[in-house]
């Protein structure tokens, strides 16, 4: 089973976000960068499908600056085989979801694959669009929010379980297809020490806009970035008697907050 996994490097979820002086982006100094958590499920699924099939390859594709190599090495250490790192300052300020998908499609289009895996959304801008646009650009069916995947022996079709509101849907889809990983799909492995050593020698091809023959213009433009208004701690309902505190809370929700 040959697969492509789209990776994004994002600030660790523990990061306290600060806005830059221009008010257009975050302060990147001191940020710990990690592979987007949903992409870990995508990498893990690609590895499991390859292991199950007993043959194949897992190719990573990622768009971003030099630092992105760390996320790529992490996924290579988990067991992915090769990577394409699209790194070009020309993309830096333009990489909205549509532009990102356009670049990824250009990087993927000549690859051989049975499936393309993405995280269901990147854990930074939370847009959840790239996989759907990628499928459209490559002319492939897309199934989002995948929690279970069974690939047929001939790798021509897959039965996919996806999360829907209040339950799940079972979908038959021909391959190749674009599939986005939801939490619950699997439990991502940690990179082993030998894995980390091997990853250093695995091939990473760097591509520029010129190499891909693609130029992009964003379809959405961020005009400004702000922090949410600070939330003040409200009142503590004090006392020694648990029942009295519960009564006071119910009363406050009823009379002050008018929620009951």
């Amino acid at each position: 089973m040959n697969t492509v996994v789209c990776l994004k490097q994002v600030p660790d979820t523990e990061t306290l976000i600060k806005i830059n002086a221009e008010g257009t982006g975050i302060v990147t100094e001191g940020v710990k960068w990690v592979m987007s958590p949903y992409d870990e499920f995508a990498v893990e699924e690609a590895l499991r499908q390859k292991e199950k099939a007993g043959a194949g390859s897992v190719t990573l594709v990622s768009l971003g600056p030099d630092r992105v190599i760390e996320a790529i090495r992490t996924a290579l250490a988990m067991g992915a085989d090769t990577a394409v790192h699209v790194n070009d300052p020309a993309f830096a300020a333009k990489a909205d979801p549509y532009a990102t998908a356009t670049v990824l499609a250009a990087a993927i289009k000549d690859a051989t694959y049975d499936a393309i895996f993405c995280g269901k959304q990147a854990m930074d801008d939370d847009a959840g669009q790239v996989a759907s646009i990628l499928g459209e650009l490559l002319g492939l069916p897309v199934v989002t929010m995948v929690t279970k995947l069974e690939v047929s022996a001939d790798k021509k079709t897959a039965t996919v379980t996806r999360e829907v509101e209040g339950g799940q849907a079972i979908i038959d889809v021909p391959l190749p297809a674009v599939l986005t990983a939801q939490k619950g799909l699997n439990e991502p492995r940690y990179a082993s020490l030998p894995g980390i050593m091997k990853a250093k020698k695995k091939p990473v091809t760097v591509k520029t806009a010129a190499d891909l023959g693609v130029s992009v213009e964003p379809m959405t433009i961020i005009k400004s970035m702000t922090l949410p208004p600070a939330r003040q701690a409200g009142k503590k309902i004090e006392g020694d008697d648990s029942d009295a505190k519960a009564v006071a809370l119910a009363k406050a929700l009823h009379e002050e907050a008018k929620l009951i």
Partner: peptide
């Protein structure tokens, strides 16, 4: 507690059943 409009420092197993009872009453 730094984000809460109403905070109760207590055992939730004592507070919740009573809260349920009170909300039901209201």
């Amino acid at each position: 507690f730094t984000k809460a409009d109403y905070g109760i420092v207590d055992d939730l197993f004592k507070v919740l059943p009573k809260l349920t009872e009170e909300v039901k009453k209201i």
